[in-house]
């Protein structure tokens, strides 16, 4: 089934789909990060639009027209409008400055592995690789790039944290039975303390429910609840994102 139809996605956002179809869309979102992102973006747009075009109640004004306003009222109105204008401007101009401008981040837990994320060191580079491709050659190329980068940073004494999130079909890389890179992963994870491999537990559950597959992960893999949530969280925390 395909959900590439924008109309249908819009219908979903507007709550106009049948519950069956909604369930299918939700399932598709769970498995397809691009689609989920698209849906998220659309609903955000919708919320912004409804906020911008919310209509003020009009009935009051019809009544108000009969009453002649006093000068105090007029003065107060002007003051309030001015307040609104200034407030709006400050809000509008201020938010980006303090929410996105800083390069230091307080992140959630200090262990530094898996779901962890310590307070980032001043100059630490942090990259999350989002692996969704089942292809082991592609995954191998990613491992080469990761290794080259970690080695280069280590040689220069610069801190680098890399997290590989395997999700959907990308989970193959961390599956005992399907991974062609078990030894390589073990060697890399041992050599670089800043490197972590995490597996999406939603994917594992889905494989169990839909295909009756009991997934066994390689020992170097850690488990997180949702691959999508995790990469979103990482990007919020200021990590760079690379899709593989």
């Amino acid at each position: 089934m395909s959900f590439n139809d924008d109309l249908e996605l819009n219908a979903y956002i507007d709550g106009e789909l049948t519950s069956d179809r909604q369930a299918e869309l939700l399932e598709a979102m769970r498995t397809d990060p691009d689609f989920a992102r698209q849906a998220c973006e659309l609903s955000r747009l919708k919320a912004q639009l409804s906020l911008a075009y919310a209509t003020p109640p009009r009935a009051r004004w019809r009544n108000a027209a009969k009453v002649r306003p006093s000068w105090q009222q007029i003065a107060a109105s002007i003051a309030l409008v001015a307040f609104g204008l200034i407030g709006g401007w400050l809000l509008h101009a201020g938010i980006p400055a303090w929410s996105f401008g800083e390069s230091r981040f307080v992140v959630l837990d200090p262990g530094g592995r898996g779901q962890a994320a310590a307070v980032a060191a001043e100059n630490e580079t942090r990259i999350v690789f989002h692996l969704t491709s089942p292809d082991q050659t592609t995954a191998g190329e990613m491992l080469e790039e990761v290794e080259a980068m970690l080695a280069a940073y280590q040689a220069e004494g610069r801190p680098l944290r890399v997290e590989v999130v395997s999700h959907g079909e990308g989970l193959n890389l961390l599956r005992e039975r399907l991974s062609r890179h078990k030894a390589r992963i073990h060697q890399l994870a041992t050599r670089f303390s800043g490197l972590t491999f995490v597996a999406c537990s939603n994917t594992i559950k889905r494989l169990a429910v839909e295909h009756g597959v009991e997934v066994k992960l390689i020992p170097d893999a850690e488990i997180i609840d949702s691959g999508i949530n995790h990469v979103v969280k990482r990007q919020r925390e200021g990590w760079s994102y690379i899709r593989v």
């Binding site: 911008a52 009544n63 109105s77 309030l80 204008l85 709006g88 509008h92």
Partner: peptide
């Protein structure tokens, strides 16, 4: 009370017009 309400509405409308303009 009604007057106060209409004044507040005026303020809110001002805010909305402004943010609309900004958009």
């Amino acid at each position: 009370m009604k007057r106060l309400f209409s004044l507040i509405m005026a303020g809110i409308v001002g805010l909305m017009v402004w943010s609309g303009a900004a958009l």
